[in-house]
Design a binder for these strands. Structure first.
Lengths: 210, 210
DNA sequence: CTCTTGCTGTAGCGTTCACTCCAATTGGAA
DNA sequence: TTCCAATTGGAGTGAACGCTACAGCAAGAG
């Protein structure tokens, strides 16, 4: 007990293998969805046998959920409003939108897989779907806070509507890029989106400041 | 030859069976995606054996593509700008948006399946995906025409950007409703979207009329 | 050294998959 | 009536699925 067995060395390449499995899974699942992700395909891509996958993860459901969880934090970091020193409110919002767009261009598999899971409606809901929706809701709250900060005169309903609209626009523009290819300038479209929402919010705030 | 054998009666319930198979397929595929749609499940839902399904359709790919094709026309009919007698330009756009929203609420399976297919990136692209993207492009062109009609001063790039933004917003709002449930007032959100785009277009047209 | 622990390799279980074969049935044509 | 083509029914194919059992191996601990 007094022995520091807590310092148990993670021997061999267990941690690295886990990462390799997750890397392979996010790629395949992001391309083919939940049902299309076979353990055999993941095994072939990461070079580890199926038994290793099942040693690291309980089952396929657990594996997909782990993929979502891992991508979560790195992605959510992009949803942050720059400080006041960054310029006018519109410029700050525009920069924030551009940052989100860049993160989506760099790592599209996460949102692509998440949206596929979200659209599916199988009787037994996969855990990965639940996790994705929770993550998504956190992002949504952060956006709602931004709206409230920049437009304190807006009432609760208006904030909710604008937040929903902002998230929906982001989803739709992401899908547009996924469909139409790399030629789409997602950053520019997100900046347009920021401008649209900003102007709409300004108009709504000017109309009901009491 | 002179005989009107063209009047060959479609005997038995062949046509009706085909419809029942398509009905079952659009429901299952709209819930579970391409890979998740098993012939056995379709067979169970429509009450016809697998051999009947394969008599009517070449293979699974052909079946899914047929589902998309059938839903196409009825859905595209909603994408139409009301005439000038319907009120101000904003009112007309808003009505159009509301009509599209209503058609999506009534038959969400088509777009849900289509978006799932669109997001997937399997090496051998299913024919259904191609068909969906073609349909989608027709809808996009109709929207572009509406933008050009209402804002003739806009240049080509602006029209394209606004059209892309309009479609993306529609997709995103649809997804929001699919995720958040029937409590979401899709018609209201589409009307807000129409207002946002209209104001944005007005602003853009006012800035560069030369 | 031995023992334990962490992880890999192989083989295979039972089930479901897309799809096929072919005999039965059924209604219109001759 | 006989015949033919349009469907259906059911049984069955090999392949792929998720997942498991278990032996083997490498290294830190005793």
């Amino acid at each position: 007990m007094t022995r520091p067995q807590t310092t148990r060395k993670k021997r061999a390449n267990g941690v690295e293998s886990r990462q390799r499995i997750l890397d392979a899974t996010v790629e395949i699942a992001g391309e083919r969805g939940y049902e299309g992700t076979s353990i055999a395909a993941v095994s072939a891509k990461c070079g580890l046998p199926a038994s290793s996958i099942y040693w690291h993860f309980k089952d396929k459901d657990d594996l997909i959920a782990a993929v979502i969880e891992r991508s979560f934090e790195s992605w959510l970091a992009a949803v942050k409003l720059p400080g006041e020193e960054a310029g006018t409110p519109l410029e700050r919002v525009s920069t924030m939108a551009a940052n989100v767009a860049k993160s989506l261009v760099d790592a599209p598999d996460f949102l692509r897989l998440g949206l596929m899971l979200a659209l599916e409606r199988r009787p037994a809901e996969p855990r990965g779907r639940t996790v994705f929706l929770q993550v998504r809701d956190i992002a949504r709250q952060k956006i709602a806070e931004v709206v409230e900060t920049l437009f304190p005169d807006l009432d609760e309903d208006a904030v909710q509507a604008l937040t929903t609209y902002t998230v929906a626009g982001a989803d739709g523009l992401f899908i547009h890029r996924e469909i139409s290819g790399d030629a789409v300038d997602l950053v520019a479209m997100f900046e347009l989106h920021a401008r649209m929402v900003f102007d709409g919010a300004t108009r709504m705030a000017a109309r009901s400041p009491e």
